[in-house]
Amino acid sequence: MAEATGIVVNSRIPGPGRIDIGAGMACLLVPGLGQLLQRRYFKAGLFCFCVYFLFFYGWHLGNYSNVYLPRAHECAPRAKNWTTVTAGPLSIPFPKAIYYRLQFAGQLGTGIVAWPAIIQFWAVDEEDPNAKPLPLIGLIMRAPPEQKLNLMQTHGTILWELAWVFTVAAGLLNILVAYDAYAGPGGPEARSNS
């Protein structure tokens, strides 16, 4: 890497006409991993720290129970996995779990740290009182029963609402991070770099 007149020149940085799909995909698994593969160490560390800070701070604020994917058996339509979203004249089938926890679509952007919620979703029914902790991940990111959720929302503080904003912001920011690894930075340096 050479530096001249304040412009960083690094042949590994993607730019117009030079994209890096693998690095973009790597970022969708772990924030900053794509930049690490491109040897952009400063940005890799910065992205990893910022995205994980937001995610884990939000998870902590939400009492470690705001990143989950519910089966929502008790919610309409009962005992079905799909619901219908109407958009004007269209009726679009939509996964019920995401419909009842739209925040998870954003949280999933953070990468593999949100995957335990998917494993819990497939393996355990949150309303089953006899459900046991899973090997390795235990109770991490298991959907709380409906009754417990109602209690947290009605008797908890406003932080419950703020907490998921942190985790969703982390997931959405990681999409920007992945785009940076895929196509490079969007500022004037990148254009002069290419």
Partner: peptide
């Protein structure tokens, strides 16, 4: 908790626009 939300967002956005620290 507000500064903990806006500071990482500003840093990440800044980093997606530039390469130099």
């Amino acid at each position: 908790h507000f500064p903990m939300l806006v500071m990482p967002i500003a840093l990440v956005y800044g980093a997606t626009r530039h390469e130099h620290p």
